[in-house]
Write a protein that binds this DNA or RNA. Structure first.
Lengths: 146, 146
DNA sequence: GCACTAATGTAGCCTAACCTACGTTTTGAT
DNA sequence: ATCAAAACGTAGGTTAGGCTACATTAGTGC
């Protein structure tokens, strides 16, 4: 019996989940900012706060953190913009989000639940899992064609 | 165009994800405590800490929170035990965890990634989605039989 | 039964993410 | 051009969840 490795494996998994949790908020903001910039041309703290369902000081605090992480630029009263790094992250996050929703739908999850659960699930989907998801969706499409 | 409802829907989704995040830690602890009680007969702060990959004061703090939430009982130097409420939660969480892993495996996700990602994903799977997962697994089994 | 070790607990600190209350800047309507 | 409303920003507070360093208790071996 070797309890140590099992313990360490489990600890590593929990650690991963913890770090995913801490980046989840950043990812949500970046994705939302990207959406707002794309649809309305600007991303303002108040809009961001309203969409996320938080107060605007909370949004402003988190935007400050995004700046620290070099994901956005923002100047007082001027709105928020994505850096290169932020743009790249936004693209990845958006693609992952879509894929997660698609997989849930393909599994028979109702639309609203799929959208809602994806909001939480997406942040915990690793690249390996994402690849499996993509293949699953591709195969499902092929099956439908055949 | 009515931008308000869309905003509110999105805000509600984010709110759900936020609250899932805050209960995720509690769920992890309860599940782990249940495991430890089942396999070794006792759940001690140090073991819990080691398995979760956190320091023992962190574990003790969270155990205090679990007590406040009436999920466990614990007395100094005596280990941790689940209340009725904690037991019920543990059962639900364990079943959900297993189902999430099974679904990921069925989708072609490799074992280790499935186990690791499930640790984060499980906390965001709603009852509706869980039901769809259960049906998907059942159907997959039927297909294999046929 | 004493002493050492391991487990447990306490104190004090940090960051993230939330909040309310209040002040300041922009903006747009008259 | 002014002024009110809306947006923005700041101050200060809370809880959760981490940490290290240090003190205490329990258990074990001799």
């Amino acid at each position: 019996m070797q309890p140590l490795p099992a313990e360490q494996t489990q600890a590593r998994r929990f650690g991963k989940a913890r770090s995913a949790r801490s980046t989840a908020v950043l990812e949500d903001y970046v994705e939302l900012i990207s959406d707002l910039l794309g649809t309305t041309g600007e991303a303002r703290p108040t809009d961001i706060a309203r969409r996320l369902g938080v107060s605007h000081p909370t949004a402003i605090d988190t935007i400050a953190r995004l700046k620290r992480e070099d994901l956005v630029t923002a100047r007082p009263y001027r709105g928020v913009f994505l850096t290169e790094k932020g743009e790249t992250l936004a693209k990845r996050v958006r693609a992952r989000h879509r894929l997660v929703v698609d997989v849930l739908l393909a599994l028979g999850v109702p639309q609203e639940a799929a959208e809602a659960d994806a909001e939480g699930i997406e942040h915990h989907v690793s690249d390996v899992t994402l690849k499996a998801f993509a293949e699953f969706i591709r195969d499902a499409k092929d099956r439908r064609k055949a």
